[in-house]
Design a binder for these strands. Structure first.
Lengths: 92, 92
DNA sequence: ATACTTTGGTTTATATTTTAAACTTATTTA
DNA sequence: TAAATAAGTTTAAAATATAAACCAAAGTAT
């Protein structure tokens, strides 16, 4: 009847992040914070979770002298996102 | 960019309940528990929340001598469900 | 009759999650 | 050189979800 909704994606902020990364293919911390309207702290925690799940890759480097965290979706993340959309359909 | 997802509906169990009520227009506790696969305790709590939000009506009566809790969607609940679907679209 | 089980729930407690506040380190700017 | 800003991280508090324990009434077996 109702399919399970991947709890990692069933979160407004994490879903927004993955949604951005699906089309952008690369986005940095500041961009994600602005587009999602989240606080840095919350974003930091949620990015970690997506990373731990293997849904995104995180690259910590520098832009000039300032730190720059860049995120990309992984194949696993892309797949999870598609499954999530499919599962959602069972509710509508 | 991303629309807010009504936290009351952004919950697997509550979404399933509302989803059922949208089409069934009436469903009792046992039916909801079976269809959603939830435990009675969890369902009881989540039904209360939907009721408190004015998304569903709850009628406590009897079927013969056994208690029978019947739920129905309200106009407010139906509206919230439609808004939720609309909001979700901003993530896809 | 009386013990045990089942039904239909509710309440309470625990675990998980989310979120924001506080902190860190480095960099500009006044 | 002091104060502000940037880019995060860590921590701690608040909110949520979930299950376990409980309750009352009815049915069943002894």
């Amino acid at each position: 009847m109702f399919k399970e909704l991947d709890p990692l994606l069933h979160s407004q902020l994490r879903l927004a992040v993955v949604s951005i990364l699906i089309t952008a293919e690369e986005a940095d911390f500041v961009y994600l914070r602005e587009k999602t309207g989240s606080t840095a702290g919350n974003l930091s925690v949620q990015l970690d979770k997506l990373y731990e799940a293997g849904y995104i890759d995180i690259e910590k480097g520098y832009s000039g002298k300032r730190p720059k965290t860049t995120c990309r979706i992984t194949a696993k993340g892309r797949n999870a996102f598609e499954n999530y959309i499919e599962a959602l359909k069972s509710y509508f």
